[in-house]
């Protein structure tokens, strides 16, 4: 069930920082689940993808061979949860030879300085 916004009704800025590749560890999936749950609280949510976190968004993931759930399509559900601020760090993409067109969901690609600036604006930063 949806929960009503906090009793105070104050909207805070939450940023979830995703730094891990999918599947090798549980961080990426757990982080995504926390984001989906937190969407019920009507806060100002953004997601930042940096370092290996950018690998979470790569198109064409096929997990049948390793017998775990492919959760990459779930990033496309975020829009329906009114989570539309997805920031991807350009330097992290480039270090991995990836481009914006190879990502499964529309994002804003921005330089490290801009990521830092937006991180500084937050009330709460939660890293996975």
């Amino acid at each position: 069930m949806d929960l009503d916004e906090g009793a105070s009704g104050v909207v805070k800025k939450f940023m979830y920082v995703n730094r891990k590749a999918p599947y090798g560890t549980i961080y990426a999936l757990e982080g995504l689940e926390v984001v989906l749950i937190s969407a019920a609280f009507d806060q100002d949510v953004s997601l930042a993808f940096l370092d290996d976190g950018v690998y979470q968004l790569v198109k064409g993931q096929q997990t049948r061979g390793i017998e775990v759930k492919n959760f990459s399509p779930t990033y496309r559900a975020l829009e329906g949860y009114d989570i539309e601020k997805l920031y991807v760090e350009r330097e992290s993409l480039e270090a991995r030879g990836l481009t914006e067109g190879e990502l499964i969901v529309p994002v804003e690609v921005m330089g490290r300085d801009e990521i830092v600036r937006r991180m500084e604006e937050q009330d709460v930063v939660i890293a996975f």
């Binding site: 969407a39 399509p73 559900a77």
Partner: peptide, 15 residues
């Protein structure tokens, strides 16, 4: 099938 999750009520209603 499309998103690999069951939607929250609010999301389901809107969709």
């Amino acid at each position: 099938n499309e998103y690999q999750i069951a939607p929250a009520v609010r999301v389901l209603t809107k969709a």
